[in-house]
Design a protein around this nucleic acid. Structure first.
Lengths: 269, 269
DNA sequence: AACGATTTGTTCGTATGTATC
DNA sequence: TGATACATACGAACAAATCGT
C-alpha cells in the first residue's frame, strides 16, 4: 500500500530541495499551480504536501510571494553551569546563563511584578501549600533587539515579610536578586537544580518571539530552583527560549574554550 | 480583522477541552459532523481546527474511532551531571546519564558498528579533517520495552590503529568504552562538554520512538564530547530522546534528592 | 465470519479573500 | 491598477479503520 499522494509529493519535494534542484539560492519553489501540473494532482493535495514541509521547518510560505526554503541560522549558545558568570540575567544571577556570542548586546526589558497564590509548577518546586503567597517577577530579554528569552522568577511571599521588600517593586535589582537576598536575609544559595523540558509555545511566547502560530516551533523551558544551606528551595526561575535558534552547552572538567555552534534550521514567520 | 474561522473554532475547542466540557475522561470529542453543525462550518474547516489542536499535541485522532484528548504522561528524567553514575549507557559511561525512575529497567539493545569518513557534526566536534576515518558505534536503549533513546558514539580511527581494536567490533564493551580506552591507551577523560539542542525527528527516529510522522514531536539531541588531559577531543556521543516524554535535570551544589517529575508549566499572567 | 453503520482520511472541485509586486 | 500567488472556506465523493450486530 503506497503512501498517500500528498505524502509522496512531499517526499519528492524534500528530495528535490535537498539536492538543490529547486528552491536553491533564495529562489521560490514552483507555485502551487505549477506543482499541480507537475504532479498531476489537485491544488489542495499539493498544499497538503507543502504543509508537511512547513511543519518540518523546511520551507515557509508568504502570501502573494511564494514558498521558500528556510535558511540556516547561527544558534544562540547559552552556557548552563554553576560557575558561569551572568550577563543577560544580571538581576537574577539566579539563572546564571551566559550568551557566548561576543558581539551581541543583551538587553533586559520591561518588568512586571505580581503577587499570586502559589499553584502549579512554582508551588511544587518551592514545596509550598497551594494557597501560600508568591511573588512573581517577569522580564523579557532581547539581544540586539531580537527576542531572546522570557523569564519569570517566583519567590515565597514569606521572604518579603521577612524584610526583602524590594522583591515586590517593579524595579531592577541591580546587584542581583540573589545577592540582595543574601545581604538582607542572609540567605545563601548553596545549590541549584535545572530542569530542561520542551513544549509548544503559549500565545504570549508566540507573539514575543514572533514564532509561526501553528506551534511547529517548540520552546525550551528551563526551570532553575535555588536552594539555601538547609536544602530548602527559596526561588524558582522559569525561562523559555525558542528551540529553533537556541542551544545549551554545559561543560565539566577541563574543556577547551569556544564551542563552535552548529546550525539548526529555523523559520521566519 | 478577526481570526480565520478555523482558528476561532480551534480556540473555542481548546477552551472547552481545558474546562473539561468536552473530551473529558477519555471520552471522544464530538464527531466532525457534530462539530460541523455546532459551529455552522464545513467539515473541512472543522478538520482544519482539529488539525491545529493535533499539531499542538492537545488531541489525537484515530480513524474509525474519533478524536481524543491526549493525556499527560510521566516524563523520564535524565540526570545530566559530571558526577552522576551511569546505568543505561553502561558501555559508554561517556554519556553519564541516569534514569531516576527506580522501577524501570533499562536495556541496551542491538548494536551497529561502522567505519566512515568524518563529516558533519562528528568531524567538527572531534576537530578532524574531512576525510579522516571515524568509527561509529550505534545502540538503541529501551526501558521496560519502551523506546528510550538512540545513541551513536564516534571515535577517531586513529584510536583503533593505536591499539583500541575492540572499538570496531560489534560487541559490547562491558567495562565501558572510556574505561577500556584508559586501560589500553592510557587516555583519561579529563573533561566533557554537553550540547543540548532540539530538532524534528528523522525517519529512523520516528519509527523507533513510534512518533507521529508529521514531525510535531521534536527530539532532544544531546551531544557529549569527551576531552583528554591535553584538551583534545577523543570521542563524541550523540543521543536523541523524544521531547514529549523526556526531561533533563542538572544539579550543582547542595540540593536535596528526588526531583519530582512534572509535565507542564506555570502561568505567569 | 460477515455486514452495515459510524468516523476519520484522502482527493478532487470551486469560489472568494488578501497580500505582493 | 491588474496580475500573481497563497489563504480560507465551501461542497462532494470515496477509501479505510473501527465497532456492534
Amino acid at each position: 500500500m503506497p503512501d498517500p499522494l500528498w505524502r509522496q509529493i512531499a517526499e519528492d519535494l524534500r528530495r528535490r530541495i535537498e539536492s538543490g534542484e529547486i528552491g536553491d539560492d533564495g529562489q521560490p519553489l514552483p507555485t502551487e499551480m505549477e506543482l499541480r501540473e507537475h504532479y498531476r494532482a489537485s491544488r489542495n493535495t499539493v498544499r497538503d504536501a507543502i504543509k508537511w514541509l512547513v511543519t518540518r521547518g523546511m520551507v515557509y510560505t508568504q502570501p502573494g510571494r511564494g514558498t521558500f526554503v528556510t535558511q540556516r541560522v547561527d544558534p544562540f549558545i547559552t552556557r548552563l553551569a554553576a560557575d558561569s558568570g551572568s550577563s543577560v540575567e544580571a538581576e537574577n544571577s539566579n539563572f546564571a546563563s551566559e550568551v557566548t556570542s561576543q558581539t551581541r548586546k543583551p538587553v533586559v526589558s520591561v518588568r512586571r511584578v505580581e503577587i499570586q497564590r502559589a499553584h502549579g509548577l512554582p508551588a511544587a518546586e518551592l514545596v509550598l501549600p497551594d494557597d501560600a503567597g508568591v511573588v512573581s517577577r517577569h522580564q523579557e530579554h532581547l539581544i540586539d533587539g531580537v527576542p531572546y528569552s522570557l523569564q519569570t522568577t517566583f519567590y515565597p511571599m514569606a521572604l518579603v515579610e521577612r524584610g526583602a521588600a524590594r522583591l515586590i517593586r517593579a524595579e531592577e535589582i541591580t546587584e542581583g536578586a540573589i545577592t540582595y537576598l543574601e545581604h538582607v536575609l542572609g540567605i545563601n544559595q548553596a545549590g541549584l537544580r535545572d530542569r530542561i523540558t520542551v513544549r509548544t509555545p503559549r500565545a504570549e511566547e508566540t507573539a514575543f518571539f514572533r514564532l509561526p502560530d501553528d506551534g511547529r516551533v517548540a520552546v525550551f523551558e528551563i526551570t532553575r530552583t535555588g536552594f539555601d544551606e538547609d536544602g530548602q528551595p527559596f526561588c524558582v526561575t522559569v525561562t523559555t527560549y525558542p528551540a529553533d535558534r537556541n542551544q545549551f552547552v554545559m561543560t565539566s572538567g577541563n574543556v577547551p574554550d569556544v564551542p563552535s555552534g552548529r546550525g539548526t534550521s529555523p523559520a521566519p514567520g
